[in-house]
Simulated assay, not measured.
Amino acid sequence: MFTGEKICLTAMRAEDLPIYRTWNSEMGFGRNYNSSPIRELSEKQAEEWFRQDSDRDFRFSIRPVKLDTFLGVCAIEDIQWTHRVGWISIALGTDYQGKGYGMEAMQILLNYAQNELNLHRVQLTVFEYNKPAIAMYEKLGFQKEGIFREFLQRDGTRFDMYLYGLLTSESSDF
C-alpha cells in the first residue's frame, strides 16, 4: 500500500527532522510549502510538529524504494471524519523536485485516502506561482474550486492562492 516503483512512504523518523528544519529555511522549499515567512524551525518547533499525534492527521516521509534517503513529506491532515474530507499536502526537498517522486507519492497517498481512510474528498491549497505543483494536481484530477485573491505577498508582489479538490468519483488514483 505504501510502495510504488520509485518511492515508498514511511513513518516520520527523528533523523529526518534536521533535514526538514534546513529545508524550511530554503526559498525553493519554504515558499512553495506554506505562506509563513521563510525561517529555519527550532529544534523544539520541529520536535513538536513531529510528535503531534492525532486520529485526524497522517504524515509520511517520502523515500526511494530500498533506500533511507529522506526526499520529503506528505500528509493527509485535519480529517473531518463525519464528512469524510481531509487536507492533503506534499513537499519535496529542492534537490528531489521534478523527478516524478511527487506524482508517485501523491498517487500512493490518494490510494491510501480512498482505500484505507475511506475519504470521499481531499483538498489542498497552492500558490499561483507554483506551476509545477498545479500541473501535477490537475494531472491527478484535482479541480480548481476557488481563488483566495492576492492572498500573500512575496518580494513586493501579491499572489493568489488556489483551492483544489478531488472527489473519489473524479480520479482513478483516488
Rank of each mutant, 00 (worst) to 15 (best):
T157C: 10
L152D: 06
G102I: 11
D16H: 08
Y137R: 07
Y164T: 05
L163Y: 02
R51D: 06
Q52W: 03
W87F: 11
R39E: 02
Y164W: 06
V85S: 05
M1H: 15
A11H: 07
R51T: 13
Q107G: 12
F29L: 02
L109I: 04
K44E: 14
N111Q: 10
K131H: 13
F58C: 03
V126F: 01
S172H: 12
E116I: 03
A135D: 04
Q45Y: 00
N118F: 13
K131S: 11
T3P: 05
F29N: 06
Y101P: 13
Y96N: 15
H120Y: 14
H83Q: 09
S169M: 15
D68N: 15
S42F: 00
E15L: 12
Q52K: 13
K144Y: 03
K144G: 07
S169V: 14
Q114T: 08
H83A: 10
F148Q: 14
F127Y: 07
T10V: 07
K99Q: 15
I147G: 08
L167I: 07
R21F: 00
L67A: 15
F151T: 09
Y162Q: 00
Y112A: 04
E15P: 06
K131I: 12
R63G: 00
S42T: 13
S89R: 01
R154N: 09
Y164V: 03
E40S: 00
E5V: 13
